[in-house]
Design a protein around this nucleic acid. Structure first.
Lengths: 207, 207
DNA sequence: CTTGCAAACGGAGGCACCCTCCATATTCTA
DNA sequence: TAGAATATGGAGGGTGCCTCCGTTTGCAAG
């Protein structure tokens, strides 16, 4: 029923027997859609229509759905890229500041990062609620990231040891959601200072 | 131009000369829609259709729109009721606990309250971003509420004086948004403890 | 009670968006 | 260069949003 026809796949230089490599136009269009989605979502958030994304990308709506079968799939792909940037920042800070200070700086960097993506945040709140896997990924990446900063502080005795990286992350993400006032950034920065002070071990006052 | 005809209005017992009182069925239907919306939004969040709300309420879609011209207006009306309950709680706690402890308890009560309304939270995030007035109302009410608790602590010297009620509220609301894990409540409660510790004046260790 | 009308009702209809499907076009391998 | 595999894109059926207006209902005066 299927003997000789398998040659086609075997000949393509993929030892695992997978299909041929993706076509060039498919790769290009996938990239275009991602780029367009980043722009459109940043402005209009969840309410932005996928047809607007396709239009912005210069592809048909069918092509968009071929690459990203659901709204969540597209959103997730866009979001993953953003997370990587934050993860990479940790290594830089570890080399440049003391444990508690590096933690504070990383948290502050997150605030600045978030500030440029207003439209995406409400959408993210929805997406993570509907699709736990998306949160699992970013949680994992960011938890490890902040975990490195935290562990360093614990090992030097500068930071208390009964708060985990998940807790810190929750506080950060949470605070940034409430961004309605003109001065929200200043408020979040103050809150982060209070929070980091609270994280210091008792008997080691902040100033 | 308008002499004798005003009698109709004057007779209705409204000194300001407003129109006659609303019809009974209008009042009843408005109530039904609000009740239905509370149910439907709590389940499906923002994605729930307004036509589903109308169906649940047993009224026509037109009637729903007559009372609440936009999705936001309906959502806002539902939300206002919820806020009142939290505001009222403050008076109870003020009578029952020390300043910092009352603050801690009130924040914890919020967590429990939020826990029953998962579906509405993401919707709320969207609504407040689109409609600043909704946030203005709840912010105002809740800020005053937490402000009472906070001021009491500041006056007794138990709580530092450089953090405003807005900041506390932001921390609370923010933390509660990140509710994806099974144990999110425990995490938020731990965070609140850290936060309240951070609020205590230096030189007054927590335990 | 009945009459008249302002107020409220409710759903049909036009529009935008969601997503699927498939005839056509493009790329890749041999 | 040919032909098969792969990708494209937009038409179309379905659903929800919101408006508009003919019909119904409650209210107050007679």
């Amino acid at each position: 029923m299927q003997g000789a026809n398998d040659e086609v796949r075997v000949k393509l230089g993929d030892p695992a027997g997978r299909a041929r490599r993706p076509r060039a136009d498919a790769v290009r269009n996938r990239e275009r859609v991602l780029e367009a989605a980043k722009v459109v979502f940043s402005q209009g958030g969840e309410s932005a229509s996928l047809e607007a994304v396709a239009r912005e990308a210069g592809v048909g709506i069918g092509t968009l759905y071929r690459h990203f079968p659901t709204r969540e799939a597209l959103f997730e792909a866009v979001y993953r890229r953003e997370v990587e940037q934050l993860v990479d920042l940790v290594q830089v800070l570890k080399a440049e500041a003391s444990p508690a200070e590096a933690l504070r700086l990383w948290l502050r960097a997150n605030v600045a990062f978030v500030a440029t993506k207003k439209g995406m945040l409400a959408a993210l709140a929805l997406a993570t609620q509907k699709n736990p896997d998306l949160m699992a990924y970013s949680s994992d990446r960011l938890t490890r990231a902040v975990g490195e900063l935290l562990a360093r502080g614990v090992s030097t005795g500068e930071i208390r040891d009964d708060i985990g990286p998940e807790d810190v992350l929750r506080a950060l993400i949470g605070m940034c959601y409430a961004q309605e006032r003109p001065d929200w950034q200043a408020s979040v920065l103050r809150l982060l200072d209070v929070f980091v002070d609270g994280l210091r071990k008792p008997g080691r006052p902040a100033a």
